[in-house]
Simulated scan of single mutants.
Amino acid sequence: MPYAASHLAQPPSRDDVDRMPGATVVEFGTPWCGHCQRAQPLIEQVLGAQSGVAHVKVEDGPGQRLGRSFGVKLWPTLVFLKDGKETARLVRPQTTGEISDALAALTAAGH
């Protein structure tokens, strides 16, 4: 499942995220967030080329349990997970390079 353009209608539970197998990028943000909108082309460029990485796009906000369980404070926040364990985190990424570096570390983890 490569790049996801839309936020999930119903976010997964933290238990579901913790049980996700393989490489996963969980993106927290909102459709109306300017920082999120600016980062989308960067995220799409990097994740769009990855077939073995799941991209879970979660709309975050007050009272959203999944974002709070990850301690998300700013959007977008990308959490890189390998078999449900966090390997890296990017807050408001500015370049494709930093996303690519975190993704390379994620896909190399456990190999």
Rank of each mutant, 00 (worst) to 15 (best):
L74D: 11
G34D: 03
T95E: 05
R92W: 05
P11R: 07
H111Y: 04
Q64D: 14
P11T: 10
A108R: 10
R38C: 10
R14T: 10
T95N: 04
A49N: 04
L8V: 14
G61Q: 01
C33L: 00
E27H: 15
L78Y: 06
G71E: 15
W32L: 03
D60A: 15
K73L: 06
I43Y: 15
Q50Y: 12
P12K: 11
R68P: 00
P2I: 06
P41M: 00
V56G: 06
G110W: 05
K73V: 13
A23Q: 12
H111Q: 06
T24H: 00
G29D: 12
G34V: 03
L106M: 12
G63W: 04
E27Y: 12
V26G: 02
V56R: 02
A23L: 09
V17D: 00
G67P: 06
G22H: 04
V56A: 04
T30D: 00
V58M: 03
Q40F: 01
K82V: 13
G71F: 08
L90P: 11
L47S: 14
V58N: 01
K82Q: 12
R14C: 07
R38M: 15
A88E: 06
A105E: 05
E59G: 13
A9F: 02
G63L: 09
E59Y: 04
G110M: 07
L103F: 08
C33A: 07
T30S: 15
A104K: 13
Q94E: 10
A104D: 10
P2D: 11
P31Y: 02
A108L: 13
Q10E: 09
T96G: 11
S100K: 12
G34T: 11
R89T: 12
S13H: 02
W75K: 10
D101L: 04
P11D: 09
D16C: 08
A5G: 00
G48F: 03
P21D: 01
M20Y: 03
F80H: 08
D83Q: 07
L81K: 14
Q45D: 09
T87E: 04
F70I: 11
T95F: 08
I99L: 07
F70C: 08
Q40C: 01
E27T: 08
P76C: 09
D18H: 03
D101G: 10
V72G: 05
I99P: 08
T24M: 01
P62E: 02
P93C: 07
V58C: 01
S51V: 13
L78C: 03
V79G: 03
R65Y: 02
L66D: 14
V46L: 07
F28E: 05
V26N: 01
G63R: 02
L106R: 11
A4V: 13
F80L: 12
A5E: 12
V79S: 02
M1Q: 11
L103V: 07
P2C: 05
A102T: 06
P41G: 00
K82C: 15
H111A: 12
Q40K: 10
Q10R: 13
A49Q: 08
D101C: 00
Q10A: 09
L90H: 08
F70N: 12
